[in-house]
């Protein structure tokens, strides 16, 4: 089993300039009834993306044809609230590989990493720069370099470092998955159990 390998890429970005986006907005609870992991991208940001008659809300960035790319840029405290991994699935299924924010909720951050979706945390001031850049040029390009842990605004060359722990970085680079890893140390886990009883 594996997750998709993460390689350096350059892409446009979709800006959702809202703070405290909770996972109920990313994927409302009524779409959590599937027993299979597929199709969640259709309902990403459902109640912001469509009105009550299911018509696309033209002003919502996902419906704005000027924006495209594999990078979602959002305000601080992204992914707060419910632990539903469906939020990470919906974002990844829609086609994003990276979410950029100045602050991520803990559970969402882990869920994203476990699905090959890279959360890039940057300083608030740099996040403003990114939003400004997209305002200036909706098709602005950005480079996400996991190996060197840098996020770059292509036109200006401005870049910022981001953190990721060494284990998770290796998993993303190689497409490793945690279940395989944990099963590979099952003897150590059994020994641990014996020692504590």
């Amino acid at each position: 089993m594996s997750i998709p390998k993460f390689v350096t890429f350059t892409s446009g970005a979709v800006p959702v300039e809202v703070e405290n986006i909770d996972t109920d907005q990313i994927i409302p609870a009524r779409f959590l009834k599937a027993t299979e992991r597929k199709g969640f991208g259709d309902n990403l940001f459902r109640d912001w993306r469509y009105d009550s008659e299911n018509h696309p809300v033209a002003t919502f960035p996902l419906n704005d044809p000027r924006y495209a790319g594999k990078i979602l840029v959002a305000g601080r405290n992204f992914g707060c609230g419910s632990s539903r991994e469906h939020a990470a699935w919906a974002i990844a299924d829609y086609g994003f590989r990276v979410v950029v924010s100045s602050f991520f909720a803990d559970i969402f951050r882990n869920n994203a990493l476990n699905n090959g979706l890279l959360p890039v945390r940057v300083e608030e001031s740099f996040l403003r720069e990114i939003f400004d850049e997209i305002r200036r040029d909706p098709s602005a390009q950005f480079t996400v370099d996991l190996d060197n842990q840098r996020f770059t605004i292509v036109s200006s060359g401005a870049s910022a470092p981001f953190e990721i722990d060494a284990y998770k970085k290796r998993c993303l680079q190689n497409g490793y998955d945690d279940v395989d890893y944990l099963r590979s140390i099952s003897a150590e886990i059994s020994a641990f159990e014996k020692n504590r009883s």
Binding site: N114, V179, L182
Partner: peptide, 11 residues
């Protein structure tokens, strides 16, 4: 998350 639920199932 659900990936972690699976981890606990498995290990």
């Amino acid at each position: 998350g659900t990936s972690e639920v699976e981890m606990v199932f498995a290990s």
